[in-house]
């Protein structure tokens, strides 16, 4: 096989391989929506974050506007400190609130951001103080069982 044909085939092969890798990165892993750089980070303290994980989405009105960038523990106040990187294109007033929600009944947990009405906007490093914790399913079940158990003694005499 002559040299030029060989080079051509190898060129085609390498092109196919690189196109496949680019396809995996852009179409499959959706790298285009990441847009790092133009973000600002805000912090929020929660009593309980449930199963929230780093990289979970932050949504406002159902639209993803940022991601959880770090989760740490405040040993003095015994609270979870969640840092969220929000897209710089979207500005929110300083009295916005964050709550930890679950997509579906058993789905992944994400942060819901509800915009406030203050004229002052959230800045890099600001602390969001209006937060509501995750609803922990185990606690809910525990409460239901507890209520049932409390109601039981009034029932049992009637049963007997």
């Amino acid at each position: 096989m002559n040299r030029q044909l060989l080079d051509l085939w190898v060129g085609i092969f390498v092109t196919i391989g690189i196109v496949a890798t680019v396809f995996l990165s852009l179409r499959v892993a959706n790298l285009t929506t990441l847009q790092t750089g133009s973000v600002y980070t805000v912090k929020a303290e929660f009593d309980n974050i449930g199963g929230l994980k780093v990289r979970a989405p932050v949504k406002s009105a159902g639209v993803t506007i940022g991601r959880v960038s770090a989760i740490s523990y405040d040993a003095e106040q015994h609270k979870a400190v969640v840092s969220a990187a929000l897209d710089a294109r979207y500005q929110f007033s300083a009295d916005s609130s964050m709550s930890i929600l679950t997509s579906g009944l058993l789905g992944e947990q994400y942060i819901g951001l509800l915009a406030g009405s203050d004229t002052e906007m959230l800045q890099e490093g600001d602390l969001i103080w209006l937060t509501s914790s995750a609803i922990v399913l185990e606690n809910l079940i525990g409460q239901v069982l507890f209520n049932r158990a409390g109601a039981e003694p009034t029932k049992t005499p009637a049963d007997n």
Partner: peptide, 15 residues
């Protein structure tokens, strides 16, 4: 050089 390129092709074709 070849194996990662072939793997990407395999993934794309599989998807």
């Amino acid at each position: 050089i070849s194996v990662p390129l072939l793997t990407s092709v395999f993934n794309v074709v599989g998807i």
